[in-house]
Design a protein around this nucleic acid. Structure first.
Lengths: 67, 67
DNA sequence: CGAGAATGTAAAGAACACTTTACACATGCC
DNA sequence: GGCATGTGTAAAGTGTTCTTTACATTCTCG
């Protein structure tokens, strides 16, 4: 699952710590999401979309599935 | 997090087992999602939306957040 | 140079998502 | 009655998401 979190955060000139505070998660969680270490839970994905004023589909793109 | 999975499944006259097979998860997982026991992972939410031809936002509705 | 801010990472643990196996109950159909 | 199908639930186990604490690196700015 790819995401545009880092791009959207940098557009706004926010630190990872600031974004984490807005989302009420730890800075390490923001870092892990940006670096693709894991995907957010669905509720967190909704929080991220709301904060950036976009849909989930505009921020997250599922991998092409395996045969 | 509320969802319309049961409604969408019944519109199509599918059993939980059939939906589970389409989504490549267990029947118990479909049952748990319909009954609101937990939320799906983000990748599973994308699979559900794709299968029903809707967006994630059209299927899942986050709870109003606490103060 | 030294301090502060931002980022990357690790380890241990809590909580959640999902699986397999199994059983109970209801409905419909022969 | 007896059988098949659909649904709800439980227990135990695995893997994922997220937390806290902690440390290292890099950059900028005085």
């Amino acid at each position: 699952m790819n995401n545009r979190i880092q791009e959207l955060r940098r557009q706004r000139e926010w630190s990872q710590a600031h974004l984490a505070a807005c989302l009420k998660v730890s800075r390490q969680t923001v870092n892990a999401l940006e670096r693709g270490r894991y995907d957010p839970s669905l509720p967190l994905a909704f929080s991220i979309a709301k904060l950036f004023g976009l849909t989930i589909e505009e921020i997250f793109q599922p991998d092409p599935e395996e045969p």
